[in-house]
Design a protein around this nucleic acid. Structure first.
Lengths: 203, 203
DNA sequence: AAAGCAAACTTGACAGTGTAAAGTTGTCTC
DNA sequence: GAGACAACTTTACACTGTCAAGTTTGCTTT
């Protein structure tokens, strides 16, 4: 039960962040369906109508949670990019591994991040470049962009491959119904296709 | 308003299918959030409690809709496999194009198909092979499986790439916020990576 | 210190939703 | 024709999102 003595009535002080944190907790514990405005409010120790002063309804809260989750995801990807070595191939493999790790540990957050409308996530510009996490992907892909090829092509190849693998794997569609570790699926073998990204030799 | 004269009270005759069709209509029109038991019941011309005799709650209805959607998807993929020619590469490209077409035309259905728990979708066996649509993918990938490689590796490479691209594209994350046609994104260039699937030459 | 204003809540109400229980109607079998 | 059961309907309740009105708190001005 929330300790009401530490939270003054009518002026929480940092309710917006408290609601976002409460929402993240609910998503981590119970997935998408577990997130409700009233439950967030209860966890933050306020009435059910308090969130309305900080968010444009449940959709607004979800968007704010997605934005916070993207920040955490970007931080996670930054660390992952360095985890497997300094060569461009190793960095690329590292961020793909980090992507999947994030999905395994935070499935509810990942589903929220990619469930909110794209236009609510991006700022005024409308390209994916707005996202810090996308810039990490871009940096890692840059060494593999052949001359005369738009960088987006390579970036979208990598992103599609790892995003698709992550969603299919964590949702139990790749042979293991409830995967707990990366090794529960053929991650290394599937990601071998990354070695072909940017490869323009004729076959 | 539903024509009540054609549906006898207390014995609809084919209510289960009527509810599934109603659900599919609601998803096509308004996406995931538009699907509710009461709206399905209203469209089928019955009371709000009637679905309970055919489905295990809203989750049960969603699962049934997903199964019907997978059937339609498989039919769509079968047609797509033949659409671009008879060579193995053309067939593979064809089903990927068909996958994306399906996602563009039926975004709500695709999100439902991959949003229900995997264990509710599969029959007694728990591999993806249960799904008709997966067998189409398997057939198309078979020519590219190198000796000594498990077929799943190649299948998962292809599935991950097209599934990821489809979800990112239709949800507006690949540079075009509301894509209407495949040409609104760099599908052909991104899918060029398919030509590398199964390629074991040393680089 | 007091008054006024606005922010930041709370309280209460309503509509929509899912689910459960009890009742009613229609069909089938004996 | 009677009985049993399937296939509904009706009623009720809890949960949820949202809105409107009221209350409390903090800040600014006099």
């Amino acid at each position: 039960m929330t300790d009401q003595t530490t939270i003054p009535r009518h002026h929480h002080g940092d309710l917006r962040n408290a609601l976002i944190e409460a929402g993240i907790s609910l998503l981590e514990e119970g997935g998408l369906d577990a997130l409700t405005l009233r439950k967030c409010a209860a966890r933050a120790g306020v009435s059910h109508a308090a969130p309305a002063h900080h968010f444009d309804g449940l959709a607004g809260l979800r968007t704010a949670i997605a934005q916070e989750a993207f920040d955490r995801f970007a931080a996670s990807m930054t660390a992952a990019a360095k985890a497997e070595g300094d060569s461009p191939r190793a960095r690329l493999r590292g961020i793909c591994r980090g992507y999947l790790e994030f999905g395994l540990k935070h499935r509810g957050l990942l589903e929220t991040m990619f469930g909110v409308p794209a236009e609510d996530i991006l700022q005024e510009g409308n390209g994916p470049e707005d996202a810090a996490s996308y810039m990490i992907l871009r940096d890692a892909c840059a060494p593999f962009v052949p001359e005369g090829t738009q960088p987006e092509v390579i970036e979208f190849q990598v992103w599609s491959l790892i995003h698709g693998y992550t969603l299919l794997f964590v949702s139990g569609r790749l042979g293991c119904l409830a995967p707990e570790r990366i090794e529960d699926g053929p991650f290394e073998q599937v990601m071998a296709l990354l070695d072909r990204v940017g490869d323009t030799t004729v076959t």
